[in-house]
Simulated assay, not measured.
Amino acid sequence: MTMLETVPTWIAHRGAGKLAPENTLAAFELGWRLGWRAFECDVKLSADGVPFLLHDATLERTTNGRGRAGDRTWAELQTLDAGSWYSPAFAGEPLLSLERLVQWALPRGAWLNLEIKPTPGTEAQTGRAVAQAADALWRAHGAGRVGGPTWPLLTSFRPEALQAAQQASPHLPRGLLLDRLWPGCWAEAQALDCVAVVLDHRLWTQTLVAENRARGWRLLTYTVNDAERAATLLAWGLEGIITDRVDALGPAALT
């Protein structure tokens, strides 16, 4: 099994939770300024195969574009405004490529959880491409060598995407995302040689935490925005908390 060297306790959701336009460089910079050092984000492919950050399959909610994001080339996507939807202060903020995020994150020691978020119908293609890109980008910054950066954690709700990532770059740690406990999900995580499982926090029980610790997985959860719930989950043995409340939980609670 590929090892996951570290699991940060506190992971900022999409850069800075809901305090900036999600998945943009502005969001990561804000999260960093607030003391966060671990970040989750969503990665999909442009029509010409460039990995970039966007949660939705379509462009309307978080950009001034329209239609399926995966149908646009990266050159087209780069012209879009991904900030004005949030507030005028972020007008002109562009979509963020995975390459640019890595250039920002790794020199400063940030840890990344890359959720593979395929455009429907491109699950295997996206999983393979994101894994290959991550492998190359992290190696360029010294990953795999003594003193180099920690590999990213690749996660996805789509087993087909994780399987393609496994085949392309088997050494990259993988985690299965679950928003429900579907039949065979634990066997699927084992078949994918996952090092982690990442569940909606409402699914976790103390018994389920114990069962999955016994299976040898690292245990993460999303999206926890309540301090009391976070404390309960950590007391049960959860290791990583993904949150929008970058202004109140985790590092922010210590300042």
Rank of each mutant, 00 (worst) to 15 (best):
Gln163Leu: 13
Arg128Ile: 01
Pro94Phe: 11
Glu123Gln: 13
Ala133Gly: 10
Pro159Asp: 07
Leu95Phe: 07
Pro152His: 00
Phe157Ser: 15
Thr122Glu: 13
Ala161Gly: 12
Leu177Ile: 10
Gly147Thr: 03
Arg174Trp: 02
Thr119Trp: 08
Ala140Trp: 07
Gly147Lys: 12
Arg145Thr: 14
Thr155Pro: 06
Thr150Leu: 14
Thr126Tyr: 04
Phe157Trp: 14
Trp138Thr: 00
Ala143Trp: 02
His141Tyr: 05
Ala131Arg: 06
Gln166Asp: 12
Leu112Glu: 02
Ser97Tyr: 03
Ala129Trp: 03
Ala129His: 10
Leu153Val: 08
His171Gly: 05
Pro118Leu: 08
Arg128Phe: 06
Leu154Cys: 09
Gln163Met: 12
Gly147Tyr: 10
Ser97Lys: 02
Ala110Trp: 00
Leu153Asn: 04
Ala165Pro: 03
Leu162Tyr: 05
Arg128Tyr: 08
Leu95Asn: 07
Ala105Pro: 15
Leu162Trp: 07
Ser97Gly: 13
Leu172Val: 01
Ala124Asp: 04
Phe157Tyr: 13
Leu101Ala: 10
Leu112Asn: 08
Pro170Lys: 13
Ala168Ile: 03
Ala143Leu: 01
Thr126Ser: 10
Leu95Thr: 03
Arg139Glu: 02
Val130His: 04
Trp151Leu: 13
Arg174His: 01
Thr150Asp: 14
Trp138Met: 04
Ala140Glu: 14
His141Asn: 05
Leu101Cys: 07
Arg139Val: 00
Val102Phe: 04
Glu115Ile: 04
Gly121Glu: 11
Leu137Val: 06
His141Ser: 03
Ala131Gly: 07
Pro149Leu: 00
Pro120Cys: 12
Ala143Arg: 15
Gln125Val: 15
Ala134Val: 01
Ala165Cys: 06
Leu154Ile: 06
Ala129Thr: 13
Thr150Pro: 11
Gln103Trp: 09
Glu93His: 00
Leu177Trp: 02
Ser97Thr: 13
Gly109Lys: 12
Gln167Met: 12
Leu96Gly: 05
Glu99Arg: 15
Trp138Pro: 01
Leu112Lys: 12
Ala110Asp: 03
Gly144Ala: 10
Arg139Thr: 01
Asn113Cys: 13
Leu172Pro: 01
Arg145Phe: 11
Lys117Ser: 04
Pro94Asn: 06
Gln125Glu: 15
Pro170Glu: 12
Arg128Gly: 11
Leu153Pro: 07
Ala131His: 05
Gly142Tyr: 01
Ala91Val: 00
Gly147Cys: 05
Leu106Ile: 12
Leu176Ile: 01
Pro149Gln: 03
Arg174Gly: 00
Phe157Glu: 14
